[in-house]
Amino acid sequence: MTIVMVEDLEPGSADAGVPAHYGDPMREQRLLETGVGLVDRSNREVIAVPGVERASWLHTLTTQHLSALRAHEGSELLVLSPNGHIEQHAFVTEDGTTAWLDTEPGAGAGLLKYLEMMRFFTQVEPREASAEIAVLSLVGPGAAALFPDLAAPRVHPVPETRFAAGSVPSQATSLYSVRAFEGGLARRVPLGVDLLVPRSAKDAVIEKLGVAPAGLWAYEAARVAARIPRLGWETDHRTIPAEVELMATSVHMEKGCYRGQETVARVHNLGRPPRRQVLLHLDGVATDHPPAHGTAVELDGRAVGFVGTAVRHHELGMIALAVLKRNVPDDARLTVGESAAAIDAE
């Protein structure tokens, strides 16, 4: 089997260490859309948070309602700056004794540093656990059939501006079913099922599952088509939660007292975030290479945003997630490098 690593194609990429594809990226994309494929995402970084006060402690530090999170439940959370800008995004998975936080490659050290700074006298012991746990993802409509006992993800819609008090349930806004699996955990998520398995057993788990592999390129194409943002790709140092599609999964609007909460509430009540996340279709006439992360999106020669992740999709062609100024109209004639671009307003 041909295995092409991310670093072989993109030297210096933050996603180094996992396969980009296995010889046929388009076939792998179709597999993730019609069946199920196994994606090695073991470059994700993992923080373990054991301790009897972990749930209430994480509840006070992050945007998510976690005080009621029970064993075998998962969710998503954000850590914000004092001004409400996104600093960290992580999935949280609770096994009854430890909350496992998995985040983007390169983000773990910053998340752990913040947690350690905020320990004070709380009974928690956060530690780096990337050497212990590897993340694998089963992606596609067939993933759920492999774990029929895991309930479908539940995501509470973002409430309208000036919503009535008590209208948001006192629980995590995104709730993911979890169960034990091969010495680790299986977590049902919107794209399929994530597996947090002992790193020492990763190869054995892959062999036992017997699911056809797909590379990170295929995973990224599925993610972009689903409009799911990534920390560091669709976010920059100025990004606030209302600008990207993390509000429903990661922010509880009736939970206060976390850093940056005032900005979240003010922007939500006004209903006017400075920027918004969009899906762009690129014509690909002048070039067949997706634009690099950070490439400017222009309107009449003026920069109005940036490209987060651009991919070549097997059906949609060249597409990208981008963050644009809020006042850019849906029918604007945009350019990205040498390509014309149009907003998918669906």
Rank of each mutant, 00 (worst) to 15 (best):
L316E: 14
E298F: 04
G301I: 07
G317Y: 08
V323C: 03
G317C: 06
E315F: 04
D330A: 15
T309K: 08
V336A: 05
I319C: 01
N327P: 01
L324N: 10
G305Y: 06
R302H: 13
A310S: 09
A332S: 08
R302A: 14
G301C: 08
P329Q: 10
F306L: 05
N327F: 10
V297D: 10
G317T: 08
T335A: 11
V336R: 01
H313W: 10
R333K: 05
G301Q: 04
A341M: 04
R312A: 09
R326I: 12
G337Q: 04
V297Q: 00
R326D: 13
V297G: 05
L316P: 05
A303G: 13
A341G: 08
V323F: 07
R312Q: 09
T295P: 13
A332K: 12
K325I: 07
A332Y: 12
S339D: 15
G301A: 09
V328R: 03
D330P: 00
A342F: 03
H313S: 02
T335C: 08
V328P: 04
V311Y: 03
A320Q: 06
V297M: 11
V323S: 01
V307F: 07
A341R: 03
E298C: 12
A320D: 09
D331C: 04
V297Y: 02
L316Y: 01
A320C: 03
E338F: 00
V297H: 09
G308T: 09
V304G: 00
G337S: 06
A341W: 03
E338P: 13
A310Q: 09
G337F: 00
M318Q: 13
A296N: 15
